[in-house]
Amino acid sequence: MRRAFSIAVLAWGIFASSAVLTTLDGRRVDPLANTGAKAVVLLFTRSDCPISNRYAPEVERLYEQFAARGFVFWLVYVDRTESENNIRKHVREFGYRFGALLDRKHELVSLAKPVVTPEAAVYARGQLVYRGRIDNRYVAFGKARQAATEHDLEKVLEEVAAGRTVQPKTTRAIGCFIEDLK
């Protein structure tokens, strides 16, 4: 009983800082609204960032693994000026099968505070529990491992899925600076 109460309080927190954005197919949604999802995973991206693009198959893999377990995924395009047609083409070419949001006013950027693309933000029960890299494949721009050895995002999602309390955590992601798009 007390537990349910605390969730309600946290949920209250997100409603206060929610954002209503337009999806690529023209709907208005609040991705952080309490829809009963186990967690909401935001993946900040842009079409012209080679590191973001190279992560597309890994992101798809995570989506496949966790969507069926009650997680909601959103791509968040952070370029303010890129045309919807371009973004649509990008989504199609890289085979993303989940929704895309256009963060034209950087509302989600202001909330989650990603530094680069690609970067993930995970909201569980309305609370930001993770922001940072997908994994540790990249050490610096242009310096990458053959394969990742730490799957940070996947680990967080596993913890959430298992119902454990997740200590909010941030990691440093490598990619293209969002700062430039302000």
């Binding site: 012209d48 960032c49 000026t81 721009f141 600076f177 798009l181």
Partner: peptide, 27 residues
Amino acid sequence: APFSLLTYADAQKRATQIAALTSSRFM
């Protein structure tokens, strides 16, 4: 290269990136 650098608009929307990557001498 993944994007063009021929106009002000091209460079402006990647200014921090250009500064960081030239400083590290990756580019």
